[in-house]
């Protein structure tokens, strides 16, 4: 198939970017979207031009590195897939495809279609963990966990941190991402211990980093390649409200860290 690509080019975070158009011929419908971009880049290198920079790594939909805003939708027209799992059979011969990077204040552009998502790491560092040292664990089967809870925790933990939720949200809100981690840990007895503290710290960090607010448009759920549910956002709201309302202040002589 023959395609016209309209791709955002930008040298780094400080310079202004613009769209550049490319013609691409004889693309197999069996090729993946990123393989199509590989072909484009090979063509650009052969012409002595600089290839288009885009993020990608595992190319099997799990590392969360790839993320392109394709024709107005994160990860393209197909639901429940990452960009690397999208195949050209979802497009038609003669199509024009507009490719943009994720756009959010908290995700500055590194180059072309590559953005810096380290804000996601900072949120996790604020509290996305269970405080347990190596070697301290009791036997794995010492506390049974209802299968339904374990399954729901897993579904939330399946988040790959790609940022499509932020990209899709008209407010560039990170609520789905943060709530997935809050939910995952809040649903398990191991995570329950620190739940109240965790949700407050993670939400505060998220707000500080300049993500937008949730106005419940549910675009995030619709575009999430891993189908993470907005019920996680409700759970986080619940956890957050109850932590704010009922959690006691830390004791003034608390010597812990």
């Amino acid at each position: 198939m023959n395609l016209t690509l309209k791709i955002w080019r930008q040298k780094n975070a400080k310079t202004k970017g613009k769209f550049e158009s490319f013609k691409l011929n004889d693309i197999s419908p069996e090729a993946s979207f990123l393989e199509m971009l590989d072909i484009l880049n090979q063509q650009l290198i052969d012409e002595g031009k600089e290839p288009v920079a885009f993020d990608h790594d595992c190319r099997e939909g799990i590392c969360g590195t790839c993320g392109l805003y394709i024709n107005g939708r994160p990860h393209g027209p197909e639901r429940g897939v990452t960009t690397c799992q999208l195949h050209m059979r979802k497009f038609k011969d003669g199509d024009t495809i507009v490719i943009e990077p994720w756009r959010a204040k908290a995700f500055p552009i590194v180059r072309d279609l590559v953005v810096d998502r380290s804000a996601f790491d900072l949120i996790m560092q604020a509290g996305g963990f269970v405080s347990v040292n190596t070697g301290n664990a009791p036997d794995a089967n010492s506390s049974p966990i209802p299968k339904l809870d374990a399954d729901r925790a897993f579904e939330a933990a399946a988040c790959i941190g790609c940022g499509a939720c932020v990209a899709a949200c008209k407010n560039a809100s990170a609520m789905l991402y943060v709530s997935a981690k809050v939910s995952h840990l809040a649903l398990l007895p191991q995570g329950k211990v620190e739940a109240a503290e965790r949700v407050q710290k993670m939400v505060a960090k998220m707000d500080e980093l300049g993500f937008g607010n949730c106005t419940n448009t549910y675009a995030c759920e619709f575009e999430c390649p891993k189908n993470i549910s907005v019920s996680n956002i409700a759970r986080m709201n619940r956890e957050f409200l109850s932590a704010k309302l009922f959690a006691e202040k830390p004791s003034p002589i608390d010597m812990g860290d």
């Binding site: 963990f129 269970v130 347990v132 190596t134 070697g135 301290n136 664990a137 009791p138 036997d139 794995a140 049974p144 966990i145 209802p146 299968k147 374990a150 399954d151 925790a153 897993f154 933990a157 995952h184 840990l185 398990l188 191991q190 995570g191």
Partner: peptide, 16 residues
């Protein structure tokens, strides 16, 4: 043991 303590959601049976 370590992973379960960290909150890794391994598959479980109905008995938990």
């Amino acid at each position: 043991d370590q992973c379960v303590a960290q909150g890794v959601p391994f598959a479980r049976e109905y008995g938990g």
